[in-house]
Design a protein around this nucleic acid. Structure first.
Lengths: 281, 281
DNA sequence: AACTGTGAAAACTTTCACAGCA
DNA sequence: TGCTGTGAAAGTTTTCACAGTT
């Protein structure tokens, strides 16, 4: 790896230990960061690993171990400096410079994300919003006009986004992804459950809302099993009857964009991640 | 928790091996399930571990190992029966009976979720939708009227939901959670980044969309570091300037109900808290 | 006394490679 | 032959316990 002169103010991140930070730790850093931001707002100056751990919902030992990968950040016998630690984590996560985000798919989910204060607050700026629905194009969402997806390629050059978010129907997700990749976007967050095919240098992260619900369902089932099959409140109501409706129903779409029909190809895309390493759950 | 008589036959799911299935495996089962549903729709009868693995974005060995925890599901030399495997996974995940879902917070995100076809398709039925905004109460979303959150307690008894979803602004999340817990809900999915306090018998799962973005950011930073700090496309645009605005700004809310939050996925920004033990990804 | 940072042990997960079956 | 199921090895993450610092 090319070495680099040490600019006092390095471009992307400060100390450069990224390579050695475990995946699992990185995932938690973002959580610590949120807690620290709250503490900072409350003008809390110092926090102990125990306090921070409780607020983040992890064990204090794990938290200390996590932070130790970023180098020494605390003072023994005292605790961590809230501001300093926050800045350090932001730096490591590459958030220091902020990110410019374009979003494709201005349906309900897309609009919800654009309006999500948490993004702005955490350094993500929405700079472009695209859709292919003529009824939506031109209308502003949170002050940002919806632009025609046909302009996407040009707009990417102009807006120079660091991250793109896909919230289109499943059927369009791959096409949009291709478009973004061709335009030079390196980081994509997709809310479509279909696995997107992209070159290895492009980081694709997929998020599937239904998966979360299914994980909850599993816990519920396990608890019920362990406790002897009482489902408490739920026991009263009618079971829902999952497979009553045809699986493939393009079904009741009631809102502008969101919904989808199952359209993935039989053995199509693989979830891609950078460097040949697929980032898996 | 009160212990109970041990019913030999558990009502919720067939073979009852839940206890022995590793966390990591469970998280992936939901993904396999989605792929299998697509295959079933396409009338594919048999699938090999390799095909399924590619479509799900994992290695075939891992996939076979995962499935082996559910007992024998395939035929050596042939592959897996799509329908049979799908049903088996649904059973293990506790999806066979379907789930009744109430959602509190009819903002953009809430409405997006109600309209999200993926839920219905996978056995989750929205049965109730609540908000405290008089302007929203009474208006239908996807055929479901928004009800006053004041009715929530009574409605839970009446609707007997198995799962509740919280998509309210952060400030209300805990109050709504308390309300749900008091009403007897056992499973809660929250899209607010704040850690919710709930009794140990209640399964709370939190999802924070910003975490996903931050993980992407980290990969970007790491890649840039490894490649010699060029940020390609992004290099052109102005840095965003994260901390320019006050951190605590309740900030520009531009859509009906208030802020909203979004999703994540197995590994990243997801957390499950339960039975006093915080289960980490 | 209070709290961080960390080596070393334990637990969990992934990968490998092959036995076993249709 | 082709593909599943699995034990054992390799790798990763968590937990423990305590040495070190203020």
């Amino acid at each position: 790896m090319t070495e680099q002169h040490e600019t006092p103010n390095s471009g992307v991140s400060g100390k450069a230990l990224q390579k050695d930070i475990p995946q699992a730790t990185v995932a938690r850093l973002a959580t610590y960061l949120r807690v620290l931001a709250v503490l900072a707002d409350d003008a809390v100056a110092i926090v102990s690993s125990e306090e921070l751990a409780v607020a983040a919902g992890v064990g204090s030992a794990k938290l200390r171990k996590d932070l130790s990968f970023l180098g020494p950040n605390g003072v023994r016998g005292v605790g961590y400096d809230v501001i300093k630690l926050r800045d350090r984590i932001e730096d490591v996560l590459g958030l220091s410079e902020g990110h410019r985000v374009v979003l494709v798919g201005a349906g309900n989910l897309g609009r919800a994300l654009v309006g999500y204060g948490g993004f702005r607050r955490r350094g993500f700026a929405m700079v472009g919003l695209f859709d292919n629905d003529p009824a939506l194009i031109g209308t502003p969402v949170c002050g940002l006009p919806v632009r025609d997806v046909a302009e996407l390629t040009g707009a990417v050059a102009e807006l120079a986004p660091t991250i793109a978010v896909i919230t289109t129907p499943d059927a369009h997700a791959q096409a949009v992804c291709d478009l973004l990749v061709a335009a030079g976007v390196l980081c994509i967050l997709s809310f479509s459950p279909v696995a997107l095919d992209a070159p290895p240098h492009v980081e694709v992260r997929r998020v599937d809302l239904a998966v979360e619900m299914q994980l909850l369902s599993f816990e519920l089932a396990r608890n019920a099993e362990a406790a002897g099959e009482t489902v408490s409140v739920a026991a009263a109501g009618d079971p829902v009857g999952v497979r009553t409706a045809p699986r493939n129903a393009a079904a009741m779409n009631c809102t502008p964009i969101t919904t989808s029909h199952a359209a993935a190809r039989p053995s199509g895309g693989t979830e891609t991640a950078s460097k040949g390493a697929v980032v898996q759950p």
